[in-house]
Design a protein around this nucleic acid. Structure first.
Lengths: 219, 219
DNA sequence: TAGATTGTTAATCGATTAACAATC
DNA sequence: TAGATTGTTAATCGATTAACAATC
């Protein structure tokens, strides 16, 4: 039950699995399933029961011997670990096609993240509205982030704009960057900004590798 | 030099790194760098030189002792392994916000994939055009895939539609699915369809974990 | 030839799985 | 209490790194 997060570093492999548990548990709740054993969950998720127990125990004992796990309790604990109840705030920088796809996406809301502002440099885009948000001039980004205590910046900008934007953001209190630009960015010296680089192209190519291999072997 | 692909199974960890090599090598070519040693590349990519040599040797010797790697040659070999020159074809199923972001994306073209068709079920969307493609009725998807020998289906559809769409696609000669729907799909029994599930929400949550942890520790 | 750097084997490290004592 | 299932330690497996002989 007690939080071990501060005691030892959680491996990246574990962290990457947490959102998956989060998804499956939400599904169980939706189906009114109240309790589940590591074995049952392992069958649904296609991983070993051992791994589930190891993973969950990184954060403390969430289960009960002889009973299993209380689904709602486990879900709320994992939600907490993932910061779902932390009231994190975000801005989206670059309102092109990808930016637009994210603005209208339940992705953020589902995870308790509030999108507070949209930014672009194009005068034709600045001033347009999406729901209750109006696209602002990127030059006002620093002030906006500072005034509103923004936690996360979503970068849906061209590769060429990534470096400058990173420098601007480094001057704010931003804590994380979700980077969709093709530039591979890393945290500036002396800062402590967590960066998640999303390379959709890499995902597509991993698929292409398998497809191409199969195609060659088959004909 | 000789292709070892058929000899032993390449580990997933290696496959996931190939697109990254692809990107860095393209960058080197753009900067007119003709040759590079594993050590130099390792410094740029922030991995060990040992790993680079191990990775590349899964596919055969692409380098030369005492010299290093010829950038253009290595790039073309990796491109080939990733199927860039295989003339793969694709359709996009579901022309909502995410679908639109992908239609207008150089992602496919950059990797030699030709997007041949767009599909949707919404009568208001069917018939609209994007570049030289017109959105077709999803009911015509099976025939279109068969007639055009489509390799890859990109699913940008709601979670609820994923199961049915998968069943339809299973009746075609589709070889791969790039799945953006929140449903976690797997290959139907008896078929050999490679599936790449993209969970943008999982990526966002992994970032949130780090951000939330830092926030808690700092205040 | 001497220097450099690969290809490849061996050593290390970390992550996954198995086993079982603890306990509900 | 007996049965079930966790939490946790130990064993295994695989991936990464180090080392070095091969060779350009």
């Amino acid at each position: 039950m007690n939080n071990k997060q501060n005691e030892k570093k959680i491996s990246n492999a574990v962290i990457r699995r947490l959102p998956r548990y989060f998804r499956y548990l939400r599904e169980l709740i939706r189906n009114d399933i109240m309790r589940i054993s590591s074995r049952e969950l392992s069958e649904k998720m296609n991983i070993t029961a051992s791994q589930i127990r190891q993973d969950l125990n990184c954060f403390g004992g969430f289960g009960q011997q002889g009973y299993g796990y209380n689904v709602k309790f486990l879900y709320s604990e994992i939600s907490h670990i993932l910061g779902v109840d932390n009231g994190l705030t975000a801005i989206i920088v670059g309102i092109g096609n990808v930016g637009k796809a994210l603005v209208n996406n339940p992705l953020f809301e589902k995870r308790g993240i509030k999108v507070m502002g949209l930014f672009d440099t194009d005068p034709n885009v600045i001033g347009t509205t999406f729901g209750d948000l109006t696209v602002m001039d990127a030059r006002d980004m620093t002030n906006f982030c500072m005034d509103n205590g923004i936690d996360i910046a979503v970068l849906t900008i061209p590769k060429a704009a990534a470096k400058d934007t990173l420098e601007v953001l480094a001057e704010t209190e931003i804590r994380g960057i979700w980077n969709f630009s093709n530039a591979e960015i890393s945290c500036p010296e002396g800062k402590n900004i967590k960066i998640e680089n999303v390379h959709l192209g890499d995902s597509l190519m991993a698929l292409c590798y398998e497809v191409a291999l199969e195609k060659e072997n088959n004909q």
